[in-house]
Write a protein that binds this DNA or RNA. Structure first.
Length: 556
RNA sequence: GGCUCUAUGGUCAAGCGGUCAAGACUCCGCCCUCUCACGGCGGCAACCCGGGUUCGAAUCCCGGUAGAGUCACCA
């Protein structure tokens, strides 16, 4: 077989040579140790937490080392493409602080290693596929879907491994004349790798490949024996071939991808060998897991787990910094420790390493996210929080009246957001995410204020509700300081036969109607509509005298 | 089924031949306290199983088991 002639027959329009592209995309001029990483999403427009997790690793690796992080659109599957997906991907990631140095952007490509959209790179892949054919390392395959299904059945019958390989790869043996005839007859073909592997040998003779994974250490697996499709009928490559060609030409140094790619690693290794290229350093990340209905762990799925979509967190109003912080806690096992030692340090200062990454799948933990979020929001100023809430509202709650009223008066909301946050010792950590905050703070606004809780039983039983309110109103002076104010409460408490010290009531409940806490709660319910809230005095100062009196009046 | 990955409390996780087996989140007490939150103190709770190697194993070896992933002209 004249492979050169075959290559010409298959790719009559490919006139560029591999050398041409090698020259066009020279080695990157970067400082020693700089890493080049990439994110290669398929443009379905759906990104979930797992994608962010991986993107975060890419981003840290590149930017921590003074390297480059680029975006490549992997749209080799025409069936999955969604309109506007690239924009969604870029925006979502940017929101969470992931920015690219190079690659596809909304305004087209940026960088010297493009095109960054795989569907635009047909001739490049074909050029390298042609080279493989020329060297007898790849061949056209005319098997139809039905024929492949039939092969599979035969393989099942004799318990052979499924797939197109070795003797099952019937198109391997076609002569030039046969191929030419088929092409002239209009038959479509795919290009397959002609694998040298053989897994039918006795176990101890099977060649094994060893790959150093930056996260997992030495990987040791049987070599590939499958004649994997590298170019589809359309001339567009499969993931495997696109990965090898692109990451070589784009000079990627570190390929970060999910562990679901582990099984196809031998294919990639063989492809790199056949191309005569040095493979990148692989970083196979653990997959984020989820507990399913039966209580089993399983991989996050975009189809099954819409609530793990990044948009879900944006809609709920989680702050991007909180999500980043949370992700880092599950990404690097020493991050939490570092954070405790450096509570105020910028997250960028943490030295992220692949070695400290877990290689078992972490379960997504909402409790932990919320906890982390509280800490993160505490460090954000009221002014910045306001801006964050406003941006969130504009995007997700444009028609929500409650949100509108909340944001109407900036100074007012900022005071509310700061309640108890600047306490010298133990600041309050009330804020978790935007939606939660809207609900939590509703009582500050007359439009959303309502009585949600009952008055305390002790006071109701004694019939003292309006008595307390009236006495409170009588002595109320908006200009009292916190201590003066509370002393007045104590006076009312004592006067009406309640214990000024809760401890006294606990010791001798028969001697009192209740204690100062119950009396305060009456005020609290009248003012806030709830039995629980931050400091009453502080809230009163924010609500203003007029509003305070009006609300109390309803219970007088 | 083949191949691969993983295996420490409910969750996330330290550990890398000798520890009373860290820590964080959750949960439960107590303290602080006008309620809640915060904070402090304390508590519940773990090395998948079986064999080895060793004076000694969560750590090393072998064999099971379980969970996950993957076996496409999807990525």
């Amino acid at each position: 077989m004249d492979h050169k002639k075959l290559a010409e027959l298959l790719f009559p329009n490919i006139d560029k040579t591999p050398e041409y592209y090698e020259e066009m995309y020279p080695k990157r001029d970067l400082p020693e140790g700089a890493k080049v990483t990439r994110l290669g999403p398929s443009p379905t427009g759906f990104i979930h937490l797992g994608n962010l997790y991986g993107a975060f690793v890419d981003e840290r690796l590149a930017h921590q080392s003074g390297g480059t992080f680029f975006l490549r659109i992997e749209d080799t599957d025409d069936k999955r493409e969604v309109e506007g997906a690239v924009e969604i991907i870029i925006n979502s990631l940017r929101f969470f602080g992931i920015n690219f140095d190079e690659g596809a952007t909304m305004e087209g490509d940026k960088g010297a290693y493009g095109d960054y959209t795989q569907s635009h790179r047909g001739p490049i892949y074909q050029c390298f596929a042609k080279k493989l054919v020329e060297e007898g390392k790849a061949y056209p395959c005319f098997l139809t879907e039905e024929e492949i299904a039939e092969i599979r059945e035969q393989q099942q019958a004799i318990k052979a491994n499924p797939g197109i390989y070795g003797k099952w790869a019937k198109s391997r043996d076609l002569t030039y004349e046969e191929i030419e005839a088929k092409i002239n007859a209009g038959e479509k073909f795919v290009v397959r790798l002609k694998s040298d592997g053989n897994l039918d040998l006795p176990e101890d003779q099977i060649r094994r490949i060893k790959v150093q994974d930056a996260i997992r250490g030495t990987l040791d697996m049987p070599e590939n024996d499958q004649d994997t499709v590298i170019l589809k009928q359309t001339g567009i490559p499969t993931y495997h071939f696109a990965h090898v060609v692109d990451d070589h030409l784009m000079r990627t140094t570190h390929v970060v991808r999910g562990a679901e790619w582990l099984p196809s690693l031998p294919i990639h290794v063989e492809l790199f060998e056949k191309m005569g290229w040095e493979p990148p350093i692989y970083c196979h990340t653990a997959q984020l897991m989820k507990l399913d209905e039966e209580g089993n762990k399983r991989k996050l799925s975009k189809r099954l787990d819409p609530e793990l979509s990044l948009d879900y967190y944006r809609k709920e109003g989680y702050h991007p910094a909180a999500v980043r912080e949370y992700l880092l806690t599950i990404l690097n096992s020493n991050f939490e420790e570092w954070r405790i030692a450096n509570p105020d340090a910028d997250i960028e200062e943490f030295e992220f390493t692949t070695e400290k990454m877990s290689n078992s799948g972490a379960l997504f933990d909402l409790n932990k996210l919320n906890d982390v979020s509280k800490e993160v929001l505490l460090k954000i100023s009221a002014s910045d929080l306001y801006d964050f809430l406003k941006a969130w509202a504009e995007e997700f709650r444009a028609d929500d009246e409650a949100v509108k009223t909340m944001l109407a008066d900036r100074a007012y909301l900022e005071k509310i957001l700061d309640i108890g946050r600047h306490a010298e010792r133990n600041p309050r950590k009330d804020h978790i995410f935007a939606d939660q905050m809207v609900k939590n703070l509703s009582y500050f606004f007359d439009e959303t204020f309502e009585i949600e809780d009952e008055m305390p039983q002790e006071v109701v039983n004694a019939g003292d509700v309006s008595t307390i309110i009236n006495k409170y109103l009588e002595t109320y002076d908006h200009s009292d300081d916190n201590e003066t104010w509370f002393n007045k409460i104590r006076a009312i408490t004592d006067e009406l036969g309640y214990a000024v010290k809760p401890k006294d009531y606990k010791k001798h409940p028969e001697e009192y109607k209740g204690h100062v806490g119950h009396v305060s709660t009456v005020i609290r319910v009248a003012l806030m509509g709830r039995q629980q809230s931050p400091d009453i005095w502080e809230i009163q100062q924010i609500l203003g005298e007029e509003r305070v009196r009006a609300r109390l009046q309803k219970f007088a």
